[in-house]
Design a binder for these strands. Sequence first.
DNA 1: TCGGAATGTCACCAGATTGTAATTATTGTC
DNA 2: GACAATAATTACAATCTGGTGACATTCCGA
Lengths: 245, 245
Amino acid sequence: MVNDIEVVVEAASKSTPAANLGTILIVEDDPRMQKVLRRIFVEEQYAAVVAGDGQAGLDLFRSERPLAVVLDLILPHISGRELCQTFKKLSSETPIVVLSAITEVADKVLLLELGADDYVTKPFSPRELTARVQAAIRRQHKPSAQTIYRFDDCEIDFKKMTARRSGNPVILTAHEFKLLKYFTDNVERVLTREVLLNEVWGYNAFPTTRTVDNQILKLRQKLESDPADPRHLLTIYGAGYKFVP
Amino acid sequence: MVNDIEVVVEAASKSTPAANLGTILIVEDDPRMQKVLRRIFVEEQYAAVVAGDGQAGLDLFRSERPLAVVLDLILPHISGRELCQTFKKLSSETPIVVLSAITEVADKVLLLELGADDYVTKPFSPRELTARVQAAIRRQHKPSAQTIYRFDDCEIDFKKMTARRSGNPVILTAHEFKLLKYFTDNVERVLTREVLLNEVWGYNAFPTTRTVDNQILKLRQKLESDPADPRHLLTIYGAGYKFVP
DNA sequence: TCGGAATGTCACCAGATTGTAATTATTGTC
DNA sequence: GACAATAATTACAATCTGGTGACATTCCGA
């Protein structure tokens, strides 16, 4: 599974507190969970609309044109699976993140076949849910956005997951792409190992900090003209790493 | 594989009694676990205060203004759930990471409902806990509006860790940035060596040390037009140093 | 002006930080 | 289930920082 790539959307000036980031449709029957989910997204500056059953979900989906849908699979009347498919038929653009209990995870393939873009198993942390939803939004929201990144004599296509240096193909692993993506999304900024571990490696991985160094090493060996004297993936002694194009 | 918590990491880095990263409030009744938790955070350069029950937790929360709270759900007298809600009422800003046994997670809905920002199930690895707490802290810290600081003909970007004087790049070390940051955050205030050592270095040092003076010297040489006649990093004879933009 | 105390300055090197590769563990594939 | 690819850990070498201490200079009260 290719994991979501955590991106800090910071280019936009944050001195615009009023406007929300968009609407999230929450389809969930349990009132307590409704409240929790709404709060989670409201705190992240989204607007949240809540549907207690499938029909209300469909109505709101049509009227609100949500940025993304958070869908609990266990619903009365219409099964969550049906609903998921219907959403995708109505608007295949809109990303859907499914909430599922641990026992249901077995058929995650089926889940994704239904059109879900990602899933989060209960129990989950607020951070995990919002991160996955935001990642799903980013993926869908700017499909034609520049996926090809160039610097020096390197050319990275994050969509095709291919890379070239001086025209020659370079093989990068999925993890290396993910790390590199985070660097290209945070150009010039000093990123500590802690941040990289949290943002690139993800929620459930807790490797040692030397792991980061090793991945940096790999990237340098593959992308820098002289890995011993890097010009793009710079070490900031005592702090972390910084990418400069 | 998640390591058992009893596997105590023996690092014994040079003791740093006065913390520099901030205070973590640990609410935990089991004395053994208290010790383990405190150690985990102290090793990560945090200060840790421990409360054995809910009342002590509340008191410390109010008096210490912790950066984050680590809360074990099973507590005597006040239930962890109540406590969690109370914390959030007192300061919704402060992130709360809940410790819970897997068997307790059945109540996961309630858990999130109460305002916990994340949770870690036992058994957990030290790294997992600190990573989640740090992520919660970082997330809660709104990206500071302005990371670029200007004075005279100097321009400091603390995020990129770059500095310029009259447009020309100046190389500062991580420590120098940290010291300079403290000065720019405390403009016009006289800062004694003791304060600087506590806040920037993070420990109480011998009063005879020339360490602070040395770092000041470095900063002057790099940032002042005439290091011998500083106009920004001023010496206050008999007291300390003062920064004026 | 003088003398003692506080500060400025410099260079060295111990210890911390990072680079690197080999080894081990994990994951994915057939 | 064996194999290959990828990732994480470990170990050690290379590198850099900044604390230390010696000494010079400046400050301030008498």
